[in-house]
């Protein structure tokens, strides 16, 4: 159901990495849409496949050792079938990317201004003067106080927050309708993080772009996202509008995760934090059939798990994988 407002439509995406002769799926059966003017958060712990999903959308995975199945539809174009030349036109122009490590994603021997200009050279026909002006406008837009000076500086001369602003300016240079931000604030202090998140919100209001925000920080999600998809072991286990996800989570993984946040209620004796038993299975050890979260909640009886859990809509906009959530209770709680 490709409607007008869907910017990006991902259908049954699988991304497999090669181990010897076999491919193991780091992203498995992911279907999700990004609408215009929304921030879609993808949450998961390390190894959940959230960054792999991002690199698959922007086509940055190693083509020799990766197998991509399914479709990523953008303006009726299936991105998974594009060749490198066409993809390069999409990257930067239609999809902007913000990486976690601003220092690693900037060129150390090139001034900041030149790096922003580079993207304009590639994707627009602007003349040099116009480009320079555009660069200063972009730097101003991302909240840099003195764009003239900053444009002539090198990345190492800037603070972490400033660098991340520059990376955002590069991502925004061609006003892409889609922006993918992979852990944009993880390396930053909380006060800078708040500024960067505000900035992303403002930019979205101005440009009406759709943002995919990949993060492990539930606080960041609660502050910025409109819709949230929770990933576990390569699959989306729950998808819901942000207020519903935090007030009425359904999937056992989402509930366990929310329960393990350190937070103390006023006047209450400090309780032990909830711990999810076991570990995320490695890619090779991932069970191919059955519920992937099953071994993390061993107290649940076998019969509550589906053979092949599917993402199903339980309320408008609220999708949960499998049926185990209907019976789920925390260890030590009463059985439902």
């Amino acid at each position: 159901m490709a409607t007008e407002e869907n910017l990006l439509e991902i259908n049954n995406l699988e991304v497999g990495f090669r181990f010897g002769d076999e491919y193991h799926n780091a992203v498995d059966d992911v279907s999700i849409t990004l609408k215009k003017n929304e921030i879609l958060a993808i949450v998961g712990e390390s190894g959940s496949g959230k960054s792999t999903l991002a690199t698959a959308i922007i086509g940055l995975h190693d083509p020799l050792n990766t197998k991509v199945k399914g479709e990523i539809l953008y303006k009726g174009l299936d991105l998974t079938k594009l060749n490198e030349k066409l993809y390069n036109r999409i990257r930067g122009n239609d999809i902007g990317m913000i990486f976690q490590d601003p220092l690693g994603s900037l060129n150390p021997v090139m001034t900041v201004g030149k790096q922003i200009e580079e993207s304009l050279i590639y994707h627009t026909d602007l003349k040099e003067n116009a480009r320079q002006e555009e660069v200063l406008k972009l730097l101003d837009q991302v909240g840099i106080v003195n764009p003239q000076r900053t444009a002539k500086q090198y990345p190492h001369e800037l603070s972490g927050g400033m660098r991340q602003r520059v990376v955002i300016a590069i991502a925004l240079a061609n006003k892409p309708p889609i922006i993918i931000a992979d852990e944009p604030t993880t390396a930053l202090d909380v006060t800078i993080q708040a500024q960067i998140l505000d900035l992303m919100n403002d930019i979205q209001d101005e440009t009406n772009s759709g943002i995919i925000l990949i993060t492990h920080d539930l606080g960041v999600v609660a502050e910025t996202a409109d819709r949230v998809a929770v990933m576990y072991a390569g699959q989306i286990v729950e998808e819901a509008p942000v207020d519903i996800l935090f007030t009425d989570p359904k999937h056992p993984y989402t509930r366990s995760l929310l329960n393990s946040i350190p937070q103390e209620l006023e006047g209450e004796e400090v309780a032990e934090l909830h711990v999810i038993q076991g570990t995320v299975p490695s890619l090779q050890a991932l069970p191919r059939t059955g519920d992937r979260f099953k071994n993390r909640i061993p107290w649940m009886p076998d019969e509550v798990f589906d053979e092949d859990p599917q993402l199903a809509e339980i309320a408008p906009g609220h999708k949960v994988r499998g049926n185990s959530w209907k019976h789920f209770y925390f260890e030590g709680e009463e059985e439902k």
Partner: peptide, 25 residues
């Protein structure tokens, strides 16, 4: 300022929290 910058897990009062943070900033 530091306290107001901590992300709150409270999506329903997001706007209020944001306004507060901006006021402190």
């Amino acid at each position: 300022r530091l306290l107001s910058a901590i992300p709150q897990i409270d999506p329903l009062n997001r706007e209020q929290h944001k306004a507060e943070r901006r006021a402190v900033e």
